[in-house]
């Protein structure tokens, strides 16, 4: 009798535990959906009043006279993201190759926690560092070098700060990806008379290429959404930037700077929601594309 009760109790306990884990999972899946639905609902107001094409490709941003052209923000975001990737990608790739192929084992053992710590530094600290170091450097050294008199608050400053921030993030992935290339493959290449560098170039990097590209993609989606550090150094001027020394105004900064300020204007409120939606969709796209590449690489 006692035994049966215990068994039943155990069974219910099991069901209970399974179900709350299920609920946690569903909640986790549910929240982004609610988020997107909310953004779509809120931005409907603007989309009903203005054609989407005009919103995306007009550069006229004057919310008070209800003209909402997102182009300056989208272009700024793309500039900064691509530039930061151009700076960080080669550094990351070469560092990862060095750490996995050339460095002594203890170097990699030390570097792993160091990279994790770098990845954990709050972004506002990078922002402050950008204001204290990068902005004056661009204003006093780099700008004059190219014959320009600039304030330093620029696309380039944003890209610099951002690249430093995404380096540890991408580096961790790249190390794992390159380490996953089988040793035997390198042995095969070496035993055919290839030098170490030829082996890395033709075999290791080639084999890891889908993973490398997708880690860059994930780094890009990270960079695209980064807000505070970029906002602090990028200048926040609503104009399509035509050069890297000019200030820009990326999408996340637009939302962070203005949300909560002018909610009395419903269209403005709606416009910021649309900005958030665009941001979300672009980052989602980067992510899906990168995951797709990883998946393709794994099935091959």
């Amino acid at each position: 009798m006692k035994h049966i009760r215990l068994t039943r109790y155990r069974k219910w306990r099991n069901v209970f535990h399974q179900s709350w884990m299920m609920i946690a999972l569903l909640a986790m899946l549910f929240i982004p959906l609610v988020l997107v639905a909310g953004l779509i609902m809120k931005s409907m107001l603007l989309l009903e009043n203005h054609p989407l094409f005009e919103l995306l490709f007009s550069s006229d941003w004057s919310p008070l006279s209800s003209r909402f052209g997102f182009l300056p923000f989208i272009v700024s975001s793309l500039w900064i993201t691509i530039l930061s990737l151009l700076i960080s990608a080669p550094v990351c790739l070469l560092t990862a190759i060095h750490l996995t192929q050339y460095a002594k084992r203890w170097v990699l053992r030390i570097m792993h926690p160091v990279i994790d710590i770098l990845a954990g530094i709050p972004s506002v600290i990078f922002g402050v560092w950008g204001i204290l170091v990068i902005v004056p450097f661009i204003s006093h050294q780099l700008g004059p070098l190219f014959g320009k008199s600039v304030s330093g608050y620029s696309i380039l400053a944003g890209a610099f700060v951002l690249s430093i921030m995404i380096i540890p993030f991408m580096l961790n992935m790249l190390i794992d990806i390159i380490k996953a290339v089988p040793n035997e493959l390198q042995e095969a290449s070496l035993s055919l008379g290839a030098s170490k560098w030829q082996t890395i170039k033709f075999v290791v990097v080639r084999k890891a290429l889908p993973g490398i590209v997708s880690s860059f993609g994930l780094g890009m989606s990270r960079a695209f959404g980064e807000t505070i550090a970029v906002l602090m150094v990028v200048g926040n001027v609503t104009r399509i930037p035509t050069g890297v020394f000019q200030p820009g105004y990326p999408l996340p900064a637009l939302i962070a700077n203005n949300y909560g300020e002018m909610l009395s204007i419903p269209l403005y409120d709606s416009a910021l929601m649309l900005a958030a939606l665009i941001l979300f969709l672009v980052v989602l796209m980067f992510n899906v594309f990168s995951r797709f590449l990883i998946l393709k690489a794994e099935t091959h």
């Binding site: 095969a188 035993s191 055919l192 008379g193 030098s195 075999v203 080639r206």
Partner: peptide
């Protein structure tokens, strides 16, 4: 190493096509 060809426990074809796998050693030299 060019004096010795290695055949491993499992085949590890290089990440390229059949033709390039055969010519790899020749092309790099």
């Amino acid at each position: 190493r060019q004096k010795m060809g290695l055949l491993a426990q499992r085949p590890y074809p290089l990440p390229m096509n059949i033709y390039k796998n055969i010519t790899y050693g020749l092309r790099i030299s």
